[in-house]
Nucleic acid binder design. Structure first.
Lengths: 361, 361
DNA sequence: CCATGATATGCTCAAACTGAGCATAGAGAA
DNA sequence: TTCTCTATGCTCAGTTTGAGCATATCATGG
């Protein structure tokens, strides 16, 4: 509460002095495409030597894990963070990114377990990038995987995902029961109800991050138990009441470090953005049918849409132009081919697929 | 395009090796409150010794500038970035922050001119924080100022801001004219039309950042010319076609470094958030009248709302509860006092002041 | 050539939501 | 008592949504 002069910290020494805290900045990219009606992200297989190298004898997980592509940020080379991302993604994978957007900066203590072994803090700036369908997969060991492999509970296109009732809600139930007292229990119950929409059937597609965070805190997700095991193994204490399950189980495929959290952030962001910015077109070819467009929106948002109403809204919004051409290979009546109408940006303040179904309710 | 193995960069050396890029992380906070129907932010007066110290003889600006509160991030002390912000804000100003949210990480080259003088890159992570009305101002030299002092063109509550037609649009006009060729000119015209809504009178309150960025690029805002002057003075080259005006003029009050850009980011974020999250209540007392609530929303969004419809929506949304008490000092019929209904979080997926006027159109 | 099975596309209709006002209520001030 | 204010209730036309029904236009297989 000391009323210290605020600008004292502006002194040069405070910033450039000896005590300069060493933070290494890394850039993680969630590179998204949509192919065969599935939203896919680029992942690499990565040996979790974070643990393996430092304590091979402690018997912690050594098997390789999926990880998001990563590149260090070097201020000597890169003028801006965005350019840094584009640069190393292109260098490593040959992919030329279209839309690129900064997501969030993650710098929690122990987000990288190497910190426990004496490494410095590694801050990671998450990025979201979109590339067109049909872009050749990354070279090297990078592959495209459906993001639903990691978040199966986020795909409601074929109805309520079974994993919710089979694994997730029971796990959360357990966590609620394990609360220290009634008030905590009630708070936990509320939180589950809010994020998973257990009450009014109100599933909010945008709350991907909230849901993942909750699953992590509740120890339902494999990463939670893995990280806890790492802390214990390295001498940290753990007061947490996580269920004692094998570290590798849990809903969805796990990822290295906090990468699944970064993915969740990306999913939340793109689902939100869909409504008010024309980002879908970044994932579509130049000419497309309305059903193709609908399928991409559905893949990203994870919910089915009413076809006729989708047409009405998209056409009515002025987002697209009829090219006059048709796509004949539909298996039925040929579909008109449309293209994105860039001029709409000039006319409407928030052009996007503002479907009511996507607006939350 | 070399198809290098992606995971090669995961090697420990790449991260912790000798060539570790030195990046200092600072935290800037946009601390917002609303008092007397004005949205206010906490600012400090700061001598721009960035330039003054390094080249006192070159005659560059030495007068103090407004700056956002700043604190270094020290990974040795702070477990998370959020905690870091709360900690130094409390230490320096005695303010206990309510809502805190990360905005964006800024790390452009030369965002801090000290870099030109040989300092390392200073990355800044911007934060948005809300504190209740009536919170005592910061101690030391921190003061509350209306954010419209810095962005006067964002306040449409009393009609179209005069500064738009008097200063901004002429300045942008000049920039459009100065384009190298017709296609650039057309692109610039489009961009102005989009961000400032010159076409259909479509002012999108959320595009605060787009507008500020455009003003900066067009050299309309004082910071653009200041930064350019600094680059030239320090030997950098400048090919830019910025108008030759005194560095200190331009619409709105200028700020140090890229702080006005960070403010613009905060304004965009909160205006967007207002629609789907109950953030207004962070700025209101426990019990409030609907008009008080409306005034806070108007102050933040910069637009006037229809009173009866505001009531209808807020009450209908279940966001508030009647306390049964009344506020008598209204100057007219006493107004019912309401309080925030926290349970709404459990019921609705996206509770917020989702007024149509705030939805863009 | 005609039914069948697909998908595309057009159109309708009730329910809910918005934008703008009119009208009345309950205070203090003149 | 009347006037002036702000609060609060209510109406109404225009628009937007949610859900379907109906028709169009292909390919395919009798």
């Amino acid at each position: 509460m000391s009323a210290r002069n605020v600008s004292s910290l502006f002194q040069r020494e405070a910033i450039f002095g000896e005590g300069r805290p060493a933070v290494v900045i890394g850039l993680n990219a969630v590179i998204i495409t949509v192919a065969e009606e599935e939203p896919r992200i680029l992942v690499v297989r990565r040996a979790d030597h974070a643990l393996a190298v430092d304590m091979p004898s402690r018997g912690l997980a050594e098997e390789p894990q999926d990880a998001l592509p990563f590149g260090p940020f070097d201020p000597q080379v890169h003028r801006t963070l965005d350019l840094g991302v584009r640069d190393w993604v292109e260098t490593q994978t040959g992919l030329s990114l279209g839309y690129v957007e900064q997501l969030y900066t993650f710098a929690d203590q122990y987000r990288d377990p190497r910190e426990l072994a004496g490494g410095g803090r590694v801050a990671s700036i998450g990025y979201l990038a979109l590339v067109h369908q049909g872009t050749p997969g990354g070279s090297g060991d990078a592959i495209w995987r459906s993001w639903h492999d990691y978040m199966p509970w986020e795909d409601w296109r074929d109805g309520r995902p079974a994993v919710l009732d089979e694994e997730i809600l029971p796990g959360l139930e357990h966590w609620i029961e394990a609360a220290p007292d009634a008030s905590h229990r009630s708070a936990r119950l509320d939180r589950v109800a809010i994020t998973f929409g257990t009450e009014a059937g109100a599933w909010d597609a945008e709350r991907v991050l909230d849901r993942y965070q909750l699953l992590y805190e509740a120890g339902v997700v494999a990463e939670a138990r893995r990280d806890r095991a790492a802390r214990i193994a390295l001498g940290g204490t753990s007061q947490e009441d996580l269920p004692d399950q094998p570290a590798q189980t849990g809903p969805g495929r796990s990822m290295a470090l906090d990468h699944r959290r970064i993915l969740a952030t990306a999913m939340s962001r793109i689902r939100g953005k869909l409504k008010y910015r024309p980002v879908v077109f970044e994932l579509l070819p130049a000419a497309f049918t309305l059903l193709q467009m609908q399928r991409v929106v559905e893949a990203l948002s994870g919910v089915r849409l009413h076809k006729q109403n989708f047409r009405r809204l998209v056409i009515g919004s002025g987002l697209v132009d009829d090219t006059g051409r048709v796509e004949a290979r539909t298996g039925g009546r040929p579909a008109a081919l449309f293209r994105f109408r860039r001029e709409v940006l000039r006319e409407r303040p928030a052009p996007g697929v503002g479907l009511p179904a996507l607006r939350g309710a």
